[in-house]
Computed example of a mutant assay.
Amino acid sequence: MQDFKSLANQYKTALLQDVIPFWEKYSIDWEQGGYFTCLDRAGQVFDTDKFIWLQNRQVWVFSMLYHQLEQRDNWLKIAAHGANFLAQHGRDAEGNWYFALDRAGNPLVQPYNIFSDCFAAMAFSKYALISGEEWAREVALQAYNNVLRRKDNPKGQYSKAYPGTRSMKSLAVPMILANLSLEMDWLLASDRLDAILDATVQEVMTDFLDPERGLMFENVAPDGSHLNCFDGRLINPGHGIEAMWFIMEIADRRQDTQTIQRAVDVVLNILNFAWDSEYGGLYYFMDAEGQPPQQLEWDQKLWWVHLESLVALAMGYRLTGREDCWDWYQKLHDYAWSRFADPEYGEWFGYLNRRGEVLLHLKGGKWKGCFHVPRALYLCWKQFAAL
């Protein structure tokens, strides 16, 4: 018999006694608003720029904990601190969310894609839910409608692609829309929500999933066909696996066991494809045909890829009881906890080299903030508590 109780406790303890205290202690910019995310191993700030994805994600994390775990005054205060800063500085005159600000909130990088808007919608939806603030609800809906408006041309005027030569669509857009729409279910009419969820599940599981190989492709032609080029052959294992637990959540809500089983199959196929048989861990990027990937960091081992895999496997096992799911869970658990977690200084490392050695000692930066680690710890805790 698996000891689910001690696993649940391991995740709960790591979340509440290690990871969240790290961000509470080091990341809040009480002087100028928002959060610092560029933190070294010991939590010291090494860059004060503020990246909109990470600012919004941190608002979401503290709002989520307040809503789903415990109504701690400090969590509400931290969420409000970020939300107020972002509402004041985060958007241009048309309501598009910037990519980066300086410490004081002056824009540094244009609103060049819709993911800033996605995370804003997530953050302000959850913050509106816990605060009851009408303005936050309006910010959430405006950001969400922005995402829907821009989803077919996510970079708009900032796209570097020459129009009409090689049209592609990216898995990132429908997968994040699936998760985002579930996050916003309390704000959306049920028929609208169902229509969006139907369309995203259909697109992810039809256009991006290669039925013969059972792999999730990162980019496909508009009709779902494959393109023989760097971008067309790209497999991003972490993205594919994260998309599958989003799909599992939607399917579980609808009691659609067939889609749950298909999603679990895809997770296991990706793991078999992307596991480094020599050094362990999952590759960051791969080429579907085994050609050299264009990303020079392709063989690094990243925190979020392994954490999203733990969530997908824990959820998949809870929903199906499949032994192959459990076997993979144990393998990933042993790898991730022994290499990414930092019991000495707290939180998790983000970047390992192929051999599994720490490559950068940072705990946060331009891409790593208070999001994947706490969300995964919370979700895994809840899966094992339910088991």
Rank of each mutant, 00 (worst) to 15 (best):
M1N: 09
L7T: 01
L7Q: 02
N9P: 00
K12Y: 07
K12V: 03
T13M: 01
T13G: 03
T13L: 09
L16H: 13
Q17F: 13
P21F: 13
P21R: 11
W23A: 06
E24I: 14
Y26W: 12
S27D: 07
S27K: 00
S27N: 10
D29V: 00
W30S: 11
Q32C: 11
D40L: 02
R41L: 01
V45W: 08
T48V: 14
L54T: 10
N56C: 15
Q58K: 13
Q58N: 10
Q58S: 11
F62K: 08
H67W: 10
H67Q: 14
Q71I: 05
R72W: 05
R72K: 15
D73E: 14
K77Q: 15
A80F: 07
F85R: 13
R91E: 03
D92T: 13
G95C: 08
L101I: 08
A104W: 02
G105P: 06
P111F: 06
Y112K: 12
Y112C: 02
Y112T: 04
F115S: 05
F119N: 11
A121R: 03
A123G: 05
E133F: 07
A136D: 01
Q142M: 08
N145M: 04
L148P: 03
R149M: 09
D152P: 01
N153L: 10
Y158P: 05
A161E: 15
Y162I: 15
P163K: 10
P163L: 09
M168G: 10
V173M: 02
V173L: 05
M175P: 13
M175K: 05
A178E: 14
L180Y: 12
E183C: 09
L187S: 11
A195T: 15
I196M: 13
D198T: 13
A199E: 14
T200G: 07
E203P: 08
F208H: 02
F208D: 00
F217V: 04
A221W: 00
D223M: 10
S225R: 09
N228R: 13
C229D: 15
F230S: 11
D231K: 14
G232E: 07
R233I: 00
I235K: 11
N236K: 12
G238Q: 09
E249P: 00
R253M: 12
Q258L: 13
I260G: 10
V267M: 10
L268I: 13
N272R: 13
A274V: 11
W275K: 07
E278N: 06
E278H: 08
E278D: 12
Y279H: 15
G281K: 02
Y284M: 11
F285L: 02
A288N: 01
E289S: 07
P292W: 14
P293K: 02
Q294D: 12
Q295V: 09
W304D: 12
H306C: 00
L307C: 12
L307P: 04
A314W: 01
A314P: 05
G316H: 12
G316S: 11
R318F: 06
D324W: 01
Y329G: 03
Y329Q: 11
D334C: 06
W337I: 03
S338H: 10
R339D: 07
R339Y: 00
Y345M: 04
Y345S: 00
G346N: 04
F349W: 01
L352H: 04
L352T: 00
N353E: 05
R354Y: 06
R354E: 11
E357F: 02
E357T: 06
L359T: 00
L359C: 07
G364E: 07
G365I: 10
